[in-house]
Every structure is written in C-alpha cells, then in structure tokens.
Design a protein around this nucleic acid. Sequence first.
DNA 1: CTGAAAGCGCTTACAG
DNA 2: CTGAAAGCGCTTACAG
Lengths: 329, 329
Amino acid sequence: MITIRDVAAAAGVSVGTVSKVLNNMYVKPNNRKKVETAIQDLGYQVNTYAQGLRAQQTYTVAVIVPDLVNPFFALLVNYVEQVLAAVGYRLLVCNSHCNADRELAYINMAKQNKVDGLISISYSNMDEYLEADIPFVSIDRHFRYPICCVSSDNDMGGRLAAQKFIDTGCRNVIYIRNGSRLLGETLKRGKSFMEVCERAGVNASGMDFGEETTLTRQQIRKIYDFLEHSVRDGRLIYDGIFTSSDVHAVAVERKLRDMNIRIPEDVQIIGYDGLRVLNTGDYAVSSIAQPVKDMAVACVDALVKMIEKKPVEDGVILPVRFVDGGTTR
Amino acid sequence: MITIRDVAAAAGVSVGTVSKVLNNMYVKPNNRKKVETAIQDLGYQVNTYAQGLRAQQTYTVAVIVPDLVNPFFALLVNYVEQVLAAVGYRLLVCNSHCNADRELAYINMAKQNKVDGLISISYSNMDEYLEADIPFVSIDRHFRYPICCVSSDNDMGGRLAAQKFIDTGCRNVIYIRNGSRLLGETLKRGKSFMEVCERAGVNASGMDFGEETTLTRQQIRKIYDFLEHSVRDGRLIYDGIFTSSDVHAVAVERKLRDMNIRIPEDVQIIGYDGLRVLNTGDYAVSSIAQPVKDMAVACVDALVKMIEKKPVEDGVILPVRFVDGGTTR
DNA sequence: CTGAAAGCGCTTACAG
DNA sequence: CTGAAAGCGCTTACAG
C-alpha cells in the first residue's frame, strides 16, 4: 500500500506538506506540483480510515431500515446512497429486521465515531440510547430529542384517499393497517382518512392488525380471514379499502380476486407508497405516492448539516399525490 | 468517547491486557474479570476502525450493484447484508449505475484496505484494475484472473424455458435480451434456450436490444416498436417470448396487453429472476427463479474464505427452477 | 511557507 | 502472565 510517506519521499517534501496538498491548504506552487506528480505516479489515494481516526470522522453514514425486501425501503436506500455519494459519503446498510439490538449496534457505532451519522426507519424503542449530539435523521418517527424527522405528508395522504372514495360514491369504507404505533407520523394516514370520510357522511372504520411491522405470512392470513368474514349476502360490506402500505393493498387485492369480488367495480382499493410492479412497470395498485427521492434528498441534506454542526429544521414534510393503479374508479 | 485507555485505568491494568481480553487471548482470570467489569461499567466498545488501521482489516465489505431499483439487486443486497452481519461484517453499498469510475473507486478502497473485500455485479471493463490478491467475488461474470464467480444455472434456465415452450406446443419463439456482453454467464440463458428449441424443431430467434445494462425508457420503447412490427395478419408471429430478465418480461406483457394479444393463450412469456409483485405478492410473470438467497450465501462464504486466505473454488453455479406467474399455459 | 513531532485508538512483538 | 513502547496512516498545532 502506498502511504503519504511514500508520496513525501518521492516528492522530496515532508508528509505535512503532502497532507496540506491533500487538504487544499496553501503550499508553494512548486512543491504542490511535485506532490501532485508524485501522487499521480504512485497512484496514491488517502486512507480515509486513518484520516477518520485522526479527524474523528469517517465520511461514512449508516442507514437503518427493516429490510430491502419492501421496495419502498430499497428505493429509499437507493436514493440515499446516490445523494450521499454525490457529497462524498459512503453508505453502510443495516437491515434491522426490526431488531432493537441491531439498531443499537449502529447507534453505538455512531457514538464511537465509526459512522458520522445515521438515517433510520426504526420501529423499536431506542429513545434512551440516542444522544442529543449524534447526527440522526429519522423517517416517519418522532423522538424525545428534537431529532430531525423526514416524512411524506401522511395527513394529506389520508385526505386524498378519503376524497377519492367520497368522489366515487363509497358508502362504507375501512382503513387497514399494521405496524408499530411508535411511528408518530404514519398514524396520521388513518386518522385524517377517517376524519374526512366521517365529515362527508361516509361510514368509516379502522382495523389494526397489530404491532408487528413487517407483513408476515400470519399477518396476511389474518387479513384474509377478516375479508372472508366481511361478506353479507354474498357481497363485501365495504366498498372502499385504504391500507397503510401498498404491500397490504396487494394482499387485499389478491384475496378479493380469489373471492370473485370485482375491483374496482364492487370495491376500490388504495394503498400507500406508490410502488410500481418491479419498480418499472405499472403502479401495483391505486395508491398515495410518497416522494421517495425527495425524502432521500431531505434526509441526506439534514444529516450532512448536522454533521457539519449547522442548524437543521426539526421536521420536513413532503407532499404526496394520488396515483391510479387500476384499483379505483 | 471511551477508549481502551479508560478501560485499562478503570481496571488497573495496562492497555495491552485489555487488548488481550478483547481478543480472547490468555489473561489471568482475576484480571480478566476486572477488565470485563470495567468494560461493562463504562459501556466500552472497541473502535473497529482503529483496530482496522492497525490490523489492516476493517470488517467491512462492499457490494457493487448497478442500483437497488431492480428488485433482484435489492434482494441480493438484502441477503448479502444479512449473511455478512451474521459473521461480523458490515456492508457498504455502492450503486455503480454501471459507471466504471464508481466501481473503480471501490476497487481502490479494497486495495487500500478500507474494505476487506468486494462482491460485484459489474458490467464495466475493469479487468485491468483488479489484482489477484484482493478478495473479490463476481456475480454472473468471469474475469481474466481466476476470480470466484457465483451465478445461477443460466444454462439450465434457458433449457427450462425452452422445454416449457416445447411442451405447450409453441412453434415460433424468440429470446429478447439487452445488456453487456461482458457477462459471460448470463449469455448462456439465450444460448441454451435457442439450442434446445432448435433441437426440438421449434423455430427460435434472438433479439438483442444493445449493450445498455439498465432497461431505460428508450430501451423499452425499442422493445415496444419491435413487438408492434412483429404482427402479421393481426396476429403476433411469436407464440413464446423468453426474456433475459423479469423486468423485460413485464414490459413485454404490458405492451402485448395493450395490443389486445391474449396471454397466455396467444403468446406465452417467460422472464428470468423469479420476482414477485412488491416482493411479497404473486410472481410478476412466469419465470426462471434464481436462488437469490443461496447466491448471497455463496458470495459471502467465498469472500470470507478469501479474506481469511483460505482456498476457494473459482465457480459456484446454483440451480434454478421454473415458476408459474400466469403468463404460461 | 514548511518540517518535525505528537497523537487519534488500537495490537503485537519484546522484555521482564 | 503483563507492561511499556512502537507503529498502523493520517492531521495539526508549533517552531523555525
């Protein structure tokens, strides 16, 4: 491996001078030139970990997501990496599988300066482990500390879904969700949905399938059971189903098709996220599309500011839009 | 930050002794106990980057993929991370966007011991930058150096697709692909497909939509155009379409539906990858399913062996299977 | 403007 | 068995 010492020797200057060239500090033009050629000739590149050990900075950021199986998380990580790379940071990915220990391990890495900051979609209770001074951006969730929280406009999302059902004449709708109740922001999806429906005289109920965050096979089975038991006189009692994610919506759609219920004629479905089939095809279902790229930009933007000790607003809410995926009229 | 020095002071021993406890070397039981309590009390954790600087190892591995938008890559990274975490490695994700410079940056990181090894799905010509001694596992691609290459059984995949078309009475089939021709392994998909078809007396042709690796909007348009021009007397001239990925197959399916061609009655479609809608629903199309989790395990297994200077076989080929996604009879 | 030296948090021969 | 010291590749006061 070629070190700064090799470059210094080749250029006939001290390591300090090489370091100054590396860090764009003033060096006599003549020396700078010699150093630059030496760097070229030797193919030298700084060891950023040694740099980090010294500067207590690693130019590495970690993103904590439950997994990359859910395309929403995969897309988010995709864009986060893209934006981070553009500003010179690397990305460590931690799939927490909603395991608090794994999340803690990364928080500890941050405390020890092994990563400069964290972006997290977390569902576990880690309030007490966070410290006010570690750069941390949360998605969809608020913490005790005034930590920057980036989210889509969940309130607006709920309203848009409600309005769609109202406009198309639904009379009895339901909101289906599951997942942690810790995520302050996402709870607004259902809340505003119900409020708007009720205000318009549409009967709206909610169904919570528990705290588990990923939609396991068992969870899906519960939803199936629920749908099977929601039939009266051969018809589904609901004519509009809004779900907390597209994955839920796809499961609902599949079950209803199996039950020979026509979509969108008999019942309409709206998911949340705005995912496309294989991320390139049509929208999987009608949905509230989150601006995932803008969310990634907002996260990175806030995090880098925090790393650089600049002031950061403590909440960013980005607009959503309704997208037609064929499961609405 | 709590360092090894703090622990040593608290335990009343030298830093060397603490280090030995950390590395499971022999320490007098009494001292070991004191160190362990000090570690507990202070909440100390080693700084792995300092460790790495010293040991020239970082316990960090990088995976280079074009992006995480294609669910196949996202799933692969998902499992790679999972398996790596289980053996104590972190994962740096590099979305190359098929940009050779980005790939090189990570190869250089490996050369400088900033990552211990690389797993790569690469489409650029980086043979010359690789060195025989950096731990490197390639997916679907062979290099000049005898680098470990993990792939699904592309040959078998092509045969399975061909056989399905043969068994269901197809008379005129086509293989549609695009992407780099550098990827030795994936070319076998089309090759064995054509061979098996021809041997069975089924007319088989191939259509290559160029070197670009991601299926851009323009690429999709070209495929659309091609399909539009493949109609004679109101019917598609092909009755079986095999594509190099599921993303291609989904595009083909959408276009054909728009053209009012019945699938699978008039034409059958088989993709490659075996992806499900939102990774949880039904198979997006009939397909040749890659054992993505096993591939991740094989990659990590080989890479860790290389890092530990153990011998590694230079090729791993994992079996595929046909999955029915409704686009075949 | 530049060089010599200290130190970031570790590990590992080397004494003792 | 353990401690003191050197050194991994850098940066940054501090002299000069």
